[in-house]
Design a protein around this nucleic acid. Structure first.
Lengths: 218, 218, 218, 218
DNA sequence: AATGAATGAGGGTTCATTCAT
DNA sequence: AATGAATGAACCCTCATTCAT
């Protein structure tokens, strides 16, 4: 019958996580107070310290599971060989964007190295590895679409692709609309962005080859 | 003889602005202390309050002139009819990116509504008008390149173009490299991003028209 | 069958006491945490409150037995009539010093009225009686050495003797060396301190008597 | 006319110092709160941080001047060649004891390495140098009295002498009596302690020489 | 115009202790 | 008897801001 207590504790932990998640997302890590989190979670601020070592640990606990879930979703799309490479790339991108919008300012924290520092002291922090893994997945999906590109050319394309994804997220990070509303309203635009980029990348490959051939002929 | 005092005062004001600008740019609005600004400006922290209502007013005052300067630079490129439309778009984009990198965290503040809120209480803040003006300039330059696009199609292209620009800036906002080093290293990549997007936009216009024509034929 | 439980309880109590003793001795009363004590004792910190009213009660319970043991050791030396009075005084002093060094910060607490206050509210606390008993034993041992001293003269000698003992302990209370290392290295110095004091006391008795006699003669 | 403000500030500083001094002395460094000090000093706790970097700086500021004054008093006695060496030693000891009683728990802090650590990170902290200087003065005064002692013998004597002084201070550190009342009541006892020790030291020198001579003769 | 002094609100964190089980 | 969860008070310290000069 001890279970009741454990359940209660787990519930508190969840309350704290969800309160912190909402507040971090809305106002950013630094601006949020432990006492605010506690207030929203319906417990004393000291209780937080029972469940999490400190504020940063709270952030970590908050990030890891959702990032892991995202990674799984992205991986499963990548392995979905019924889909065309273009569909897989669009799917993965949509998933990534949706996640970032759902986690709003959290996104800033994960990806812009603010509090979760990529610094010397903790080089292989699991969260950083996860982050890098996500980027590699996107890159793989892109490569599957651009099988005629190699090396530097591919790298540049990947960079440009990332810029656009990053920009989409950045543009709507501070929007007041819900992530779902945003996705409903804009996912076709996002898909089109992918289309445009792929068209551009391929067209450029063609142009380059023509230039080279032309150059050789002359 | 009063003039001397006035000059002195204006100078102090400038010192404060330049100190605050440098510090905000390097470490972000929140992380900078009024006392630090005062220290770097060579005055007492109370003096700042003589010239600026509060920390946020300081930020405002700081943003306006540099944004205005940026706007002028962008406008002059747009009017530079010796250049091809593509060159003008690349030039304007480079200028915008360079500015955002130079002002780093400031950028976040201008464009991501952090401290300079685009909120209900002050709807038509001059800074927001300026901001919108900048976007219109970019849009115009883009339109000059896509003269066969109209209406919704053009709007979507503009959006996608902004995403990429925004993403470029976001990607390097927290970099340790100087803006100049970044521009040196990456401006060809940025130019290429513009090329790719333009190629993609045009190719898509072609595809759509083919689809429509094909549809008509059947 | 209840016995088993009782035994278990008594054992827990002992574990707590021994953990607290070690920690208080090493780091001082204030610096030690109830949770640390619990950790070292292998129980939950709440369990401590079943056995002891609060942190201070723990200290009390801790002091009594060790003081009582010390008292017994000192008494047995005092009754050891094979030894010369000087040897007994040295022995008793060594015992007392060794105890104080072993109990380090505890010593401060017993003897310098820090947490176990000798204050108005609890005048005849058993611990204070014990403490006074120890001092009387030392005094007795001293008196056995100074059989020609009486009354005020003896009182002054006792005071001076205590000062020195107290100072020895105080000097090494915060040392990093183990009590045993300290005793090894310094017990001959401590013995010599006793020798010096006895020589001094006796010499002074002689001088006073000469003064008195001389005074009488003139 | 700015002076008024400066005076006020200096007064606040003094108020803080005197409040902190009283509280540290009565209850010890750790137990005293910045807010308490502020309360007693009649200012906000933040004001303390205007005048002193942190709590430890407050302690330093508090200790240095009084220690310096003590050192000067001790030095002037040592140079007072009208007095006999014995008188000088008694005078210096009295001065030292009086100071320690006046500064009570401060004494603990200075001399027992609690907060003002003699640790690796700040080896040559001025306060530690001062402290060592004081001990050397006492040692010099003792040596002037024991001109027939050398080397190890002298060192042991010095140690024993320190023990006694240390013990005197320790014994009365927590007394409720004022330092003046204590000095009035006990300074003759303290003087006598010095007499006894000197007699003992000298007598022991004599005994040793006899032992040596005796040994040689036999 | 400019400043040093001063402040209140609040930051994260720790601790001894109590409550429900 | 024993425990994990939870708490409120308190810790030192920092900051943007105001006041008196």
């Amino acid at each position: 019958m001890l279970r009741k207590q454990e359940l209660r504790s787990a519930e508190t932990r969840r309350d704290i996580l969800s309160a912190a998640g909402a507040l971090f997302a809305k106002r950013g890590f630094d601006a949020v107070t432990m006492r605010e989190i506690a207030g929203k979670a319906g417990c004393s601020h000291t209780t937080i310290y029972i469940h999490f070592k400190d504020k940063e640990a709270l952030l970590h606990a908050l990030s890891m599971p959702s990032l892991q879930e995202l990674k799984q979703r992205m991986e499963s799309i990548l392995l979905h060989h019924d889909l065309s490479p273009e569909e897989r790339l669009k799917g993965i991108s949509r998933e990534f964007i949706h996640f970032c919008l759902q986690n709003r300012t959290m996104y800033t924290i994960f990806f812009e190295a603010k509090s979760v520092r990529v610094d010397e002291e903790r080089p292989a922090l699991p969260i950083n590895q996860l982050r890098n893994g996500l980027f590699r997945l996107l890159q793989q999906a892109l490569q599957d679409c651009l099988d005629r590109q190699r090396g530097d050319l591919l790298l540049t394309s990947a960079r440009i692709f990332f810029f656009t994804i990053h920009g989409i997220v950045g543009t709507y990070t501070y929007s007041e609309e819900t992530p779902e509303a945003l996705m409903d309203r804009l996912s076709s635009t996002f898909d089109e962005a992918v289309d445009v980029l792929l068209l551009g990348f391929r067209q450029q490959t063609v142009l380059r080859q023509q230039t080279i051939q032309g150059g050789t002929i002359l």
